[in-house]
Amino acid sequence: MRMLYLNLGGCNGCDIELLAGVVRAMEKLGRELPHPDHSVKSERYDLTLVTGPGTLGNLCRIIRDLERIGKEVDLGHVVVLGSCACGGGIWYDSYMVCGGWDLFLKELSSRGFRIRCRSTIYVTGCPVRPEDVEKVLVQLLHNYPNLISSLR
């Protein structure tokens, strides 16, 4: 399983809670999740975790990565974590952010990039609670047995 983890300008709160949640999920599943990529390095991923409101700086970073690998990328199942990533949160209309994952994707597609997401799951909270992260990951992996069977 290939995993991508994008911090799109989050404050670290969700990222730390995500770690706690991932550790819990791994304990529950009895399997180890793979080491994620932090920038888009491959054309195909199975699971993508997103935090942060999508700052312009990170938009540029992702554009730089996408130009390197081609115009198309398949992100697989996308788990959007935290209020910022879900809808921009407290920064929703700030001049330096896109305002959440959906608008971030819109920015990318308006520049001619084709991003495919098989499903998108929104986990709210500021920051997200590790229990929620655990629940989402465990449920997701149970729903797609081919994902779980590729884990160690």
Partner: peptide
């Protein structure tokens, strides 16, 4: 990369008593 424009938001959109919550973020 993580520039979110917080000072401007605190100066314009929010009232003084709302800023502690954005400051925490």
């Amino acid at each position: 990369y993580i520039n979110r424009g917080i000072e401007k938001v605190g100066e314009s959109r929010l009232k003084m008593e709302q800023v502690p919550f954005i400051a925490e973020r």
